[in-house]
Amino acid sequence: MNYLKTVKPVMACGIFFLCFSVFKVPELLCQEPEDAMTIAVTEIKEEGYEPPAGLSLSDVENARKLTNKRIYGLAVLWLLILLVIFLVRIQARDDEKLYWKGYYSGTNKLE
């Protein structure tokens, strides 16, 4: 029954916190709101103020349209991807060469 030695304090802590929470909660909930703390106001719009127009489906269609900027962005992305692939290929080829010579790439140590 050795494990009780460790279980007991844990249980005691649990029960303690349980009691604590039970006694604590009603105290917090008992605060009643004071009556009528707010006052109603009406907003005065500035001159030339227009409420923002709601977005419609045609706006979405516009946002989906292909623009020159997007094509340009895509081109740059592919350029970068191809560059990285090119660099990776160089390294991969070097790895391959070293590997068949009996070297483990990255460490230059004999296997």
């Binding site: 979405v60 292909l66 790895d95």
Partner: peptide, 29 residues
């Protein structure tokens, strides 16, 4: 690193295809 580099190249191409599709055919509503 051999196959991992190969995986990297695959994923880069896949990423390019993915973004290209997203730009050319954006999802609808």
């Amino acid at each position: 690193p051999h196959l991992l580099l190969h995986d990297l190249v695959n994923c880069l191409i896949l990423f390019g295809v993915l973004v290209t599709l997203a730009v050319l055919i954006p999802s609808e509503l």
